[in-house]
Design a protein around this nucleic acid. Sequence first.
DNA 1: CCTGTGTAGA
Length: 636
Amino acid sequence: MLPSIVAVGTIPLPPNSNCASLQRRRNTSPSSSQHHTITLLRRCKTIQELHQIHAKILKTGHSQDPHLLFKLLHHCSTLNSIDYAFKLFETIQAPDVYHYTALICGSIVSGHSDACFRLFFRLLEGQIMPDLVVISYVLKACGIELSMEEGRQVHGHALKLGVGNERLVSMRLIEFYGKCGVFGDAEKVFDGMPQRDAVATTILISCYSDWSFIEKARTLFDNVGDKDTACWTAMINGLVENGMTSAALELFREMQGEKVPPNEVTVVCVLSACSQLGALELGRWIHSYVGRFGIKRNTYVGSTLVDMYSKCGSLEEAKKVFDEMPNKDVVSYNSMIAGLALNGRSREAAELFKQMIDRGLSPNHITFVGVLNACSHGGLVELGYEIFESMTKVFSVEPRIEHYGCMVDLLGRVGRLDEAYEFIGRMRIQPDHVIWGTLLNACKMHRNLDLAEKVAEILMKSDAADSGTYVLLSNVYASFGKWSEAVGIRSKMKDHGIQKEPGCSSIEVDNEVHEFLLGDIEHPRRDEIYQKLEELSDALKLEGYSPEKQVVLQDIEEDEKEWALSIHSERLAICYGLISTKPMATIRVVNNLRVCNDCHSLIKFISKITGRRIVLRDRNRFHHFEDGFCSCGDYW
DNA sequence: CCTGTGTAGA
């Protein structure tokens, strides 16, 4: 389908306009005073300096100099001051297409892509001739915002202006249609490009990955003759984003085999795979790679390293990278705060939050997720309230559902259940199944059947419930001995075709990640692992360990493999660690679900009798086991 | 030109 052209009205096409000649060239060369100001702007490092330069321009009567205004606008976006850019823009009496482009570009960079289409519309209304550059940026914005209608209209304008086949426009069109998931149109533009364009292919690969069409992406990728760094990186990232971390790492190895040099983006993607897998050794290796191969240590690389070390349970290394980062930004702080929270260092997380404020950085919504999460993990109720209040009052950050979620968790975890319930009632947005699930779990922890039933009823009615919610519901009923309800949930799950997410644990030994699924293992050293398991259980019995008869979903299943299923994958991974690593080595295991009470106390005992440090990462935090104790203080 | 960081509950 061709995009609608009429929707935005007539475009003022000047007579004899030949769009191929629409090049961005100014017919005047800057005067020497302009030149001086531009040099000042280029050296300008803070928005305050920019204000001064602007003041000077006003004083010298150049307030409407188009070239200077363009440079000013452009610099606002590099200095992250889109607000000032908008104010400045409004003072321009006759903005031209360059001013619009600068503002649109700045809006995209600062995460305000939604403003771009409005600006473009204003440009058209002002009888200003758009060019291929401004069209390209607006298309980019439409892709980010998934604005189907707007993007189609811009496509129409591009065709009408005759720039529809410009390489830049074609690429943005592919990006726009691809991001919106309209691959028919994306492919149509792609096929219309003169030659098989490697860059355009990279865009398409990335879009297919965004929509989880990994096979499509892979086919395109395999057919690119001369793959550059970005192309490899796009494919690696696609695999990482779709949870295919092992395949991503394999592709990274292949990339090295092909002697394509990775850049900082590649490193970020591979580190992200390490974080997901908990592959500390590999992560360290990539880190050393950064130093050795001249990869830029920008804030992306730094923050990702902090995240990787945190998620691999090595907080010391995370802190070291963080402390050594020269230009820490909000994201760097966010990584470190979340990392501290994840590892149960709540006070330190809160202190770092204070420190970032003192340094004049503005916290964003993610910062607050991190620090509120730290409060809830640490039981810091009053501090949590204080910070939550400060969001709107001090920092003008509107709380989102996840912030409310942190607060419900904070209150529920310490047993202030009614307060949590009332808190949900006062929320300014509709609570979702996550919020109710959080409260329900708190009810289970604190054995409040009345409230649990009330919440369960609400959850049953919600249609957004996912497999985790169903499992939670069923476990809650079972834990209160409500068998028929528990069975009812289970059959409801079956009816809805919802599968329980299988438990999976992984452990990295000698740079290789070994994955274990619940119960059945197809591991070369299966017998030794099971032998170790037996051995431990005998030793544990002597130590006085008796498994809590936790009633879980499996107990009401008729399953001949029940015994195997009762062995959670983290136990298998730990046993494998015990038999395959040096006697005093720390064992690091990553699990995809929450560790159950039973495994948690079992692992405490294992750490005691084997003298090993065991670091277990579960769904949302770390447990550092040592000599019979866990860093979470059994509070998780 | 294309590729990238940080995010509550279970």
